[in-house]
Design a binder for these strands. Structure first.
Ligand SMILES: [Mn+2]
Ligand SMILES: [Mn+2]
Ligand SMILES: [Zn+2]
Ligand SMILES: [Zn+2]
Lengths: 163, 163
DNA sequence: GTTGTAATGAGACTCAGTCTCAGTATACGT
DNA sequence: ACGTATACTGAGACTGAGTCTCATTACAAC
């Protein structure tokens, strides 16, 4: 039983709490590769789930100082192997991490080329349908097998436009 | 006068050779920031111009062993400052470099998540118009000022599908 | 409890990328 | 042609995000 994520479920509303569902799903994913859902991993997943944006290792370290850096790296890598976490490359030198789209929803990123900030944006279904068919076209003649796509918008965030 | 790129122009056809145009354009960009277009920089630009795909430092080093690594890094960084080169993050840990779209044309990338290979693909104008308007939509409500976009398709290249 | 396996923390280590500095090349003014 | 200022270069030291090792600890199963 973890202080970080008390799992005392409210039995009267089995599926009411999205957080419980998320963590149970994560646990399933980990179990599938014979891994346990320990408190350190829970802490990392909890951070990613509530941040609203991809987090760097520094973000994670300062938000959860009790999780050692080397463990945080390993947690993220294990969670990635389990299909729970996705690593993304931002405009700066630091990798960012977010929950896999299977556990959240498909979305894209605005990357600030000045400060490195990454902002989540969710496009309309119509947009996505268009993108998907375009991706098929691009992909076909190269003998390339597409598994996903990423539409990044590069520019300057609101705070960096003051400069 | 460089052995790497003889600039003896054929005066009878002033604009017939695209390579000459490219290098003159690069020189202009460099001059704009008080930089010279030296032979090492020429070698790097020549490689990027003829490769047909983004190159890693290793690619560049093995294709031009006479250019020291530290100089190659510096050339790329200087050329990037001059707006001639663009750095892109692939699926692996290694950065890739390509000529800026101002000097070539707008295009996108297929990233192999297995071997890290990057393939250039050029979408239709209709596609691009769609993407551009979608980008505007995504961007508007965030107070974000977009300067460019990148549509990456992640998957497995033809050679890696045999596995 | 015993045993096998997974997880952890501390810190050594790797290596892509950056920085320093002494020496060299190039442009420009006279 | 010469002097001067500034850009450029190569060698190698250095940085630091990310990885690996290993001794120890937690967990799950029987
Ligand atoms: Mn995201
Ligand atoms: Mn490209
Ligand atoms: Zn910013
Ligand atoms: Zn491949």
């Amino acid at each position: 039983m973890s202080v970080l994520r008390p799992r005392t479920a409210d039995a009267t509303r089995p599926s009411a709490n999205a957080h419980l569902d998320l963590h149970e799903l994560v646990e399933t994913h980990l179990r599938r590769i014979d891994q346990r859902y320990t408190s350190g991993r829970q802490a990392v997943v909890q951070l990613l789930a509530t941040s609203g944006r991809p987090l760097s290792i520094s973000d994670i370290s300062s938000a959860a100082p009790d999780v050692p850096r080397s463990s945080a790296y390993r947690h993220l890598s294990d969670l990635q192997r389990a299909g729970v976490v996705r690593r993304i490359a931002a405009s700066d030198e630091f990798a960012r991490f977010e929950l896999a789209e299977d556990l959240t929803h498909h979305h894209h990123h605005l990357l600030c080329s000045n400060c490195g900030k990454v902002i989540d944006v969710t496009p309309s279904p119509a947009f996505e349908a268009t993108v998907a068919s375009m991706v098929d076209d691009l992909t076909l003649e190269q003998g390339f097998h597409a598994t996903s796509h990423a539409l990044d918008v590069i520019g300057h965030c609101a705070s960096c436009q003051a400069t």
